[in-house]
Design a protein around this nucleic acid. Sequence first.
DNA 1: CGTAATTTTGACGCGCGTCAAAGCTTGTGG
DNA 2: CCACAAGCTTTGACGCGCGTCAAAATTACG
Lengths: 255, 255
Amino acid sequence: MAANQQVVRFSSIRQACSDCSLIQLCLPFSLGAKAVERLDDIVQRRRPLKRGEHLYRAGDDFKAIYAVRAGAIKTTLVSIQGEEQILGFHLPGEILGLDAINSNQHSCDAIALEVTSVCEIPFENLEQLAVQIPELQQALLRIMSKEIFNDQKLLQMVAKGSAEERLASALVGFSERFGRRGLSRKSFSLPMSRIELSNHLGLAPETMSRLFKRFQEASLLQASGKDVTIKDKDALCELAGLCRVNPLGKMADQS
Amino acid sequence: MAANQQVVRFSSIRQACSDCSLIQLCLPFSLGAKAVERLDDIVQRRRPLKRGEHLYRAGDDFKAIYAVRAGAIKTTLVSIQGEEQILGFHLPGEILGLDAINSNQHSCDAIALEVTSVCEIPFENLEQLAVQIPELQQALLRIMSKEIFNDQKLLQMVAKGSAEERLASALVGFSERFGRRGLSRKSFSLPMSRIELSNHLGLAPETMSRLFKRFQEASLLQASGKDVTIKDKDALCELAGLCRVNPLGKMADQS
DNA sequence: CGTAATTTTGACGCGCGTCAAAGCTTGTGG
DNA sequence: CCACAAGCTTTGACGCGCGTCAAAATTACG
């Protein structure tokens, strides 16, 4: 039984978090093996979500944060008039639910864009663990800080950028995120519909469609359905313009 | 000397944080007197900033977060082309600098809008203290969570709202923030220029000016210079529309 | 394989940005 | 304490980017 549990633990930590940003972000802080083990003890598994299924809804009690393991999730804020604003897309290795810590209830809906599996990290346990493991506390703060930073860049984009700039910036962003997961930065498959993407960027779907066309005519990329291949990354980055997307240097990936 | 220090400590904690959100947010978690005392030990004082002076700049090493004590500070992201986007305004009792935790350097500029005094909270010390005082860790996480939530609401506003909705929402937001500080919710003085406000909301200054005129003609408010008096709060809230601004209930304040 | 949901395309209009110029503040130095 | 300059704010005229409406073409899904 003990041996069995050991196996379960290792397999779950592997599967659940092989590229989960909680762990990813812990690594730079040299989270020890024991800490990882203890973290793994509190991580819950969940049955995969089907496309369109809610992970949580605005108003739900806040119990846990989630790390996407496979698939993709959108978070949305619904206005009084019922209009939906997509706040973000969460890809494998990314965390969601952090905005609920303050109010103790979720402030937005989280909906699977495709078949998606997540690991659930009960927040109360996580908080307790963070008290005992300073590196974990540090990691948590960094994750949240990064989220704030991302939101700010997005705000800048939406407030100041033209439709072109917004799309270019979003595409470069996705390229980067896929790249970090070890996938191709040049060719990838977007998990969301054009409608959802346009919603997220504060544009009309028609505008989005015309933009894709224009980008293709300009040989910046090739797109068919959700599959996108970036053909001129430099030009795209140039277009994205507003903010330096990749301050760390070149995207060396050529795959 | 010991007695002296005691005095200094109490006076500084009073002055620095009588309505500083770090403390504010600690209170609901029953941060003990000892914790407050220890927190006070690490809080630094700084000479007041003059109007236009930088508290920090993008790229500066991250050493501390700041709580505004008096005055107001804007944080701005400057694009490659030199365009400025104002990310937020920070009033007394509010924290800034949290976005720098992740990268260990500030990602935006923080500039005083008027004569402003802040308290500086060295982050390394704060982090250490948070390990020892679980309630402080909890408070920190909540503050950051709230920041994320605010950014998300702002994004929704800017992405979806019309110019009218953005201004209404911003005004109701300020009203609420002034109210929390014990000031009037109906009549207050904005610390920023119209240009800065319009920039923050992703609008042209001319649009802002015309909006203020329209709002006055509709008897929603009265404004002269930076002084604003809200005359029809309900209508403004209605206009702000998109998101429920004050989920806790009515703004009972009649001052 | 049929129905619904996307995506595309075109036409059109409006909200808001842009330009320009005239008041109005605010701050500074004489 | 006035005067001048620099920056804000306002106002009007005008145009464009992008939203909206409508309808066809394509895709996804039960």
